[in-house]
């Protein structure tokens, strides 16, 4: 992407976790200089691609993802009201992902990070929260028609909840309509096989890569 020096500086500050400097430039661009908000968000996405790459390469970890998410939220909150979008002009999303923590489990840190990473990578994500009953998953899936369903869980009790939830997808005749990925502190191949999920991921980048593969987006 062609960038002028100021745009390059914004991308660099965002990617380097220099929050104060990045927000100062972004705010000035949006509120004083009349820069197109869609352009600012595009620059943010470029920076987030760099953050994601550094995460994959083992330079960045969860703290950087969390701070990147915060910076993006702050800039997005200023930019979005300024966008004058004609109907049908919204950026096309790569695919739809429904995500939630299975019943009995209240943990959400990992799920929230996966949601954020999918969102900044161009997926439309619906997060239906924690301790989600099987019936709620089914209702939400019928209404939302996702390409991928993500089941999250941190406790060992989540193994059975995931198995039960996926079995209910089968019973409802919808299992073939989407892929199922699972994740959480204790999830491994043994648990994937036990629950009948299509795949598991050990971090948010793996979740993005699974969704890319399944929706036919080049990794």
């Amino acid at each position: 992407m062609e960038m002028n020096a100021r745009e390059e500086a914004l991308v660099k500050h965002l990617a380097d976790m220099e929050e104060d400097e990045a927000l100062e430039i972004a705010k000035a661009m949006l509120l004083e200089e009349g820069v197109d908000p869609l352009r600012v968000l595009e620059l943010c996405r470029t920076a987030m691609d760099m953050v994601g790459k550094r995460f994959e390469e083992g330079e960045y970890f969860l703290p950087e993802l969390v701070l990147a998410g915060e910076m993006l939220d702050t800039i997005g909150a200023i930019a979005k009201p300024l966008i004058k979008t004609a109907p049908g002009e919204e950026a096309k999303k790569l695919g739809k992902v429904l995500i939630g923590t299975v019943h009995g489990d209240l943990h959400d840190i990992g799920k929230n990070i996966v949601t954020f990473m999918l969102d900044i990578n161009g997926f439309e994500v619906k997060d239906i929260g924690v301790d989600v009953p099987v019936a709620t998953f089914i209702d939400e899936i019928r209404a939302y028609r996702p390409d991928v369903v993500g089941l999250s869980g941190f406790l060992t009790l989540a193994f059975d909840s995931m198995k039960e939830t996926i079995a209910a997808f089968e019973a409802a005749g919808m299992r073939q309509d989407f892929k199922v990925m699972i994740g959480g502190g204790q999830i491994d191949e043994t648990v994937r096989a036990y629950t009948g999920a299509d795949a598991f991921g050990v971090n948010a980048v793996e979740a993005v890569s699974l969704c890319r593969t399944w929706t036919g987006v080049a990794a």
């Binding site: 976790m17 929050e19 969860l62 703290p63 969390v66 701070l67 915060e70 840190i109 929230n112």
Partner: peptide
């Protein structure tokens, strides 16, 4: 968890 991660920078 997330508050702490942000504090590492802020």
């Amino acid at each position: 968890a997330t508050g702490m991660m942000k504090d590492l920078f802020r």
